[in-house]
């Protein structure tokens, strides 16, 4: 079985982001970028499935700028076999990305697609579900455990009340949640090897996909800041303040 993973280049999760003073967006100049953490988990799961013999090949796809090649190389260093960049300088939005991925799926015919459940920049949490819909496939969103057997995939999902397990006939789309696995660090020899792995660049036009954003960001603002309050010396003072000052407990 071939597995397709999608990865996004995002501002590194350790960066304290700053809103631009003209309110057009978030400062991205001279900021560290890395692979969206949920996508790292998706790639890791694909690599583990390949190591276990359940998968034969891993193709990793990014939809984004030329610089997203770095993100793809990281995925190749983790163990993906081939990479495809759908190159665009447009702001990528979930519906457009899902359409691009659908076009790649039509060419590659994977048995399973694994993507991160959400990107930590736009926090949309949409692309995997949208891709499943466009393909007419089943979906296992927010997966914390997956197992393949008899042409079916069992997915344990994180839901509001706890865990839910569903079965999906393959092909299907899975979106990775935090506890699906702990991604490996790419080793230096694997980073070197990744440089020689194939990376194909395609234009959205060649796929017949229109990536024009459907949503317009009118402005981006800082959220109201919360200021630190007071330190209390002991538990008795704390309880007194909660009762008499904040009046949040009887």
């Amino acid at each position: 079985m071939k597995i397709l993973c999608a990865v996004k280049r995002v501002v590194d999760y350790n960066v304290k982001i700053r809103v631009k003073t003209d309110q057009t967006g978030v400062e991205t100049a001279n900021v560290k970028f890395s692979m969206n953490p949920f996508d790292e988990i998706a790639v890791e799961e694909a690599v583990r499935l390949k190591e276990s013999g359940a998968a034969t090949e891993i193709v990793v796809v990014a939809v984004g700028p030329t610089a997203a090649q770095e993100t793809l190389r990281t995925a190749l260093a983790m163990g993906a076999d081939r990479a495809i960049l759908v190159q665009t300088d447009l702001e990528t939005q979930p519906l457009g990305v899902a359409k691009a991925l659908k076009a790649i799926v039509a060419k590659e015919a994977p048995g399973l697609v694994i993507v991160g459940k959400q990107a930590i920049d736009d926090d949309c949490n949409q692309t995997g579900q949208m891709l499943a819909a466009l393909l007419g496939w089943g979906q296992g969103a927010f997966a914390s455990k997956i197992a393949a057997a008899n042409g079916e995939l069992t997915v344990t999902r994180e839901v509001d009340g706890g865990m839910e397990t569903i079965a999906l006939p393959l092909p299907a789309v899975v979106t990775a949640d935090l506890r699906l696995n702990e991604p490996r660090y790419a080793t230096l020899p694997n980073i070197m090897k990744a440089k020689k792995k194939p990376l194909e660049i395609v234009a959205p036009d060649a796929l017949g996909v229109d990536l024009t954003p459907r949503l317009t960001v009118l402005k981006v603002e800082e959220p109201p800041t919360r200021s630190a309050g007071v330190k209390v010396p002991d538990v008795a003072t704390l309880v007194a303040k909660l009762k008499n000052e904040a009046k949040v407990i009887p």
């Binding site: 519906l95 949309c124 891709l131 459907r214």
Partner: peptide
């Protein structure tokens, strides 16, 4: 909720519209 986050992107894609999360 987890139910809506799971299903609504699917609805949006089937209607060919963007979604606001």
């Amino acid at each position: 909720t987890s139910t809506a986050k799971n299903a609504l992107p699917r609805v949006a894609a089937l209607l060919d519209v963007a979604m606001l999360s």
